[in-house]
Design a protein around this nucleic acid. Sequence first.
DNA 1: ACATTAAGTGATT
DNA 2: AATCACTTAATGT
Length: 216
Amino acid sequence: MQIQQEEILDLLHEHFPELAEKELQKDIAEVGRLMHYNAGQTIMDYGSYVRMVPLITEGSIKVTREEDEEGKEMILYFLGKGETCAMSFSCCMMDKQSAFRTEALEETRFIGIPVKYMDQWMTKYQSWKKFIMGTYDNKMMEIIKVMDSVAFEGMDERLTKYLKARSEAAGTNELECTHQEIANDLNASREAISRLLKKMENKGLVELHRNRVVLV
DNA sequence: ACATTAAGTGATT
DNA sequence: AATCACTTAATGT
């Protein structure tokens, strides 16, 4: 137990320097649980109850919202280390079933904070409140950007933004994913994505391999 | 070597 | 831009 608390403190210092209050750090170390997911694993699914808020320390996560009819999803945003899931707050604060699905894109680790502490920490710790509010603001803007690009932009721009956002979250230019997966995320056909990627490759913007796209 | 799955291509609507 | 029908290429067994 003691060892795990030390580890959490180290992770906090490394990835969440803005959570500077000593007391807060102590609390997190005390109640936080180290979680681990493999690539492709679903962390939270539609309809499940959120019991933890994640502080991501390694890897990246994709957050999608269910869309009408069969299988159509809409990407909301990606999350990487040093971030947390804004949607998980509203879900857990309202004690609502999740309307979102989160999936680990690669091997992912985070510190899980049980939801019951959210409330008290908001009033008790200034840095926690700032952190949560800042996250809200960020992700809200990102969602609006996604909506704009769906409404006003062509597939090519959307693809470019998708790749950029995803690589930013992952902290690497090498994305492990198939054209089919990208197509699903953008609600496009696999062929369309393949062709656009090919064009980008010819322009020297990306490198294509099986199950891998490298941004240049 | 063979089967499976990912990716590329052209034609059609 | 979607869908179809097919080819080509990479990868696992």
